[in-house]
Nucleic acid binder design. Structure first.
Lengths: 190, 190
DNA sequence: CCAAAATCTTTACAATTGTTAATAAGAAGC
DNA sequence: GCTTCTTATTAACAATTGTAAAGATTTTGG
């Protein structure tokens, strides 16, 4: 159950058996159904999730429409980070796209974990740095690439999601409409 | 000289006089001219900069054109983060837009600082988290807003830069061409 | 198993942006 | 001071995207 988490954390810092034990008691396992909202727009996100199995998406609401900001896969931490880190109401909603197996930790329990395992600061720093690099990479794709190029890169990096996730969700993630995505796909077929 | 740095770090963690002393010896002061490249595409970024005075921009090169990814103002840490954090060659170039007063620390010296002042892990974690939130905010503007809205938000948040930075640089930062920016500005005048 | 909802594609038209080129004004360098 | 480079705007046209609506197909839920 904890193997995927260790596979993620291991390269960031080496944990002793004792530290691993504390870690395992800090997280709780939770199985959740599809379409469950883990945190909601306007509310403060109280938990951080590590995805053992399943897909979770983060979205914004604009003019009644849901605009996807990120799609979290297995083996990643997922959260409405802005709200979670600041512990203030945010504008993001976190919702499962599939039935999910999650490892869950609350904000307060995480702060406690920082005290108990100081090494967690190093891990959290590196996780934050990685997330920042990943966000910057996505950002660069928006200023460097046009929608078609962005779709092509998505296909290469996350081709599996094209079969697991509705296309209108992927379209909004790419910053375009479902109609435009359909046109791009048709264009690239030939 | 170190006041702007403390103003930034203070809210993240309280430093003792001793820790401040170590910090001040870790950074060196450097005055640099306009248009100096602090780190270059294809090379590994060796230093992290805190901007005491001046402006620095980070850009990508595509088809011979410079596409701006970020504009760093006074009171911020600036670096080609991807390259600096991973210590591998990156695709970003960091260049001053004005004459700058900088506090400089090398990668190796920073690692040493982590050892000497463990509290630096906490500070670095929070800095990384803030940068991540800021990158995510920019990202959300690309999927939620059209270029015109993005410009309006830029005007509100960074209106001062419209007078300090050439518009074609701001245009590429907004993900549009200088021509399109000029049209948007004209449209909004009326 | 069936009705309702969700998904994907297509069409037609409007709006916006990109591209290329030309011009004019301003700043920088010698 | 003069030339050169940079910057900002505008025009004209092509290409792309957005919007709205319709239809076909698939999936979902009871």
């Amino acid at each position: 159950m904890f193997e995927p988490l260790y596979r993620y954390v291991q390269p960031l810092a080496t944990l002793s058996i004792e530290e691993k034990n504390i870690l395992e008691h800090a997280f709780s396992f939770r199985q959740v159904p599809k379409k469950l909202q883990l945190s909601q727009e306007g509310k403060t996100a109280k938990e951080l999730y590590f995805i053992v199995k399943g897909l979770v998406r983060l979205y914004y609401t604009k003019a009644g429409e849901e605009i996807t900001g990120y799609i979290f896969k297995e083996g990643l931490f997922a959260s409405s980070y802005e709200s979670f880190l600041r512990q203030t109401p945010g504008i993001q909603t976190l919702e499962t796209l599939e039935e999910c197996s999650l490892l869950v930790i609350s904000y307060s329990r995480l702060q406690q974990l920082y005290e108990e395992v100081p090494k967690m600061h190093i891990i959290a720093r590196k996780v934050a740095e990685q997330r920042f690099i990943s966000a910057q990479l996505m950002l660069s794709s928006f200023i460097l690439d046009n929608p078609e190029e962005r779709y092509r890169k998505f296909e290469i990096e996350h081709g599996d999601l094209l079969l697991r996730v509705p296309h209108h969700i992927i379209a909004s993630y790419l910053g375009i409409t479902a109609v435009s995505l359909s046109r791009i796909r048709k264009r690239l077929m030939k």
